[in-house]
């Protein structure tokens, strides 16, 4: 492995981080918009958001990415910058999973809170923004953490479309040197470290969010707890499975 190859790989990390951040931002917007729409009083909003979730959870992220890259330019004449197409594909897909987390979080807030909001004459939107969401969001953070790690893993797909992220640079390095074992173990290690850092950040956010609403911060585990990224969360991808729910 030459210095240039390592440098290329580090540039790849930057691309991966950027993709993760942009898609997570888009995904979060989609998740909150679609997730709250699923609890709306208007059937048309509920139907449209339900349809969105069914479609984007039903299809495969990679297939959608290929579709955006190859079909949309031909069919509609829009040519995306590759980074944007990738961000769009990841954000829209993972946003649909996120919408289910948002919906679940909202549903988990006690109905009495809604009633108290009605009794104080808040508008439906005020109830959502001032009463329901502030209580629901801290509960959403652990599943969002899991989803974020799925998203980070999902960014590797863009290498198949020629975007020079870590996985793509790893391929180039392998072709140049033939040292498959070293390169891939190193790359996997980098993803693992990124996932670990993401988890730390989300834990911090969760602790602050819970302290901000008067709940005791969650206990942090010991050494093994730090090692085991998902110490407390049970199923990670269960929410990632189906198209319905």
């Amino acid at each position: 492995m030459t210095a240039e190859l390592w440098e290329a790989i580090f540039k790849g990390i930057w691309i991966t981080v950027q993709l993760t951040v942009y898609s997570a931002a888009l995904g979060a917007v989609v998740a909150f918009a679609v997730g709250t729409a699923r609890t709306s009083r208007h059937w048309i909003l509920r139907f449209l958001s339900g349809f969105y979730v069914a479609v984007f959870r039903g299809t495969s992220a990679l297939v959608f990415m290929f579709w955006l890259f190859f079909v949309v330019p031909l069919a509609f004449g829009w040519q995306f910058v590759p980074m944007w197409a990738a961000t769009l594909a990841l954000g829209l897909t993972y946003g649909a999973y996120g919408a289910e987390i948002v919906r679940g979080g909202i549903a988990a807030v006690a109905p009495a809170q809604r009633e108290a909001g009605i009794a104080l004459s808040f508008t439906p939107w005020q109830r959502m923004r001032r009463i329901i969401l502030p209580q629901a969001v801290p509960e959403m953070l652990p599943p969002f953490n899991n989803l974020l790690i799925e998203l980070l893993k999902g960014t590797a797909l863009v290498s198949l479309l020629g975007i020079p992220d870590i996985s793509f640079e790893a391929q180039l390095a392998r072709l140049a040197t033939g040292q498959s074992t070293t390169i891939y173990l190193a790359i996997l290690g980098m993803y693992f470290v990124l996932a670990f850092l993401l988890t730390r950040v989300m834990r911090l956010l969760e602790r602050r969010a819970k302290a901000g609403i008067g709940q005791a911060p969650p206990k942090s585990g010991g050494i093994l707890g730090k090692l085991r990224i998902e110490e407390t969360e049970r199923s990670t991808k269960a929410g990632l499975a189906g198209g319905a729910q």
């Binding site: 009495a112 009633e115 108290a116 009463i131 502030p134 209580q135 609403i213 008067g214 709940q215």
Partner: peptide
């Protein structure tokens, strides 16, 4: 309300 229903986040 019977169960107070204060907003726990405030």
């Amino acid at each position: 309300f019977q169960q107070f229903n204060l907003f726990p986040n405030m």
